[in-house]
């Protein structure tokens, strides 16, 4: 039986999250993840795995372990308070038709 992948390194290479800027002027957007031994290899792999069809002009990679995410269990506590503050939206305010440029 052969060894599992990267068994010599004691398991998988670190996981990186990949972000692509599809063209200049747009923000980087998350597209997926991959394993790489280091940051440079992560960029090279990201190029091969995620941009074979000119999907981007710039790449970001970040170790998945370094991402701090909100907890779905706390979603209500975090986001619910915004729900009853509709006055933060312009459509909340009734303005007479004849008033222009508002």
């Amino acid at each position: 039986m052969t060894q599992p992948e990267s068994a010599a390194a004691g398991g998988d290479w670190p996981l990186f999250e990949v972000f692509i800027r599809s063209r200049s002027g747009l923000e980087h957007k998350h597209v997926g993840s991959l394993h790489a031994a280091d940051a440079r290899m992560a960029i090279e792999h990201a190029r091969d795995v995620y941009t074979r069809r000119q999907e981007g002009v710039s790449l970001w990679v970040i170790r998945s372990a370094d991402i701090i995410a909100s907890d779905p269990e706390e979603a209500d506590a975090l986001f619910e308070p915004a729900r009853d503050k509709v006055y933060r939206h312009p459509t909340f305010y009734a303005i007479p038709e004849e008033v222009k440029n508002l």
Binding site: T2, Q3, E5, S6, A8, A9, W13, A37, D38, M41
Partner: peptide
């Protein structure tokens, strides 16, 4: 393929450790 690639993976991991 897995066995033939083993030394490449080991070398890459060693390089990463050294750089770090």
């Amino acid at each position: 393929a897995d066995a033939a690639g083993e030394w490449v993976r080991a070398a890459a991991a060693a390089h990463a450790r050294k750089q770090a």
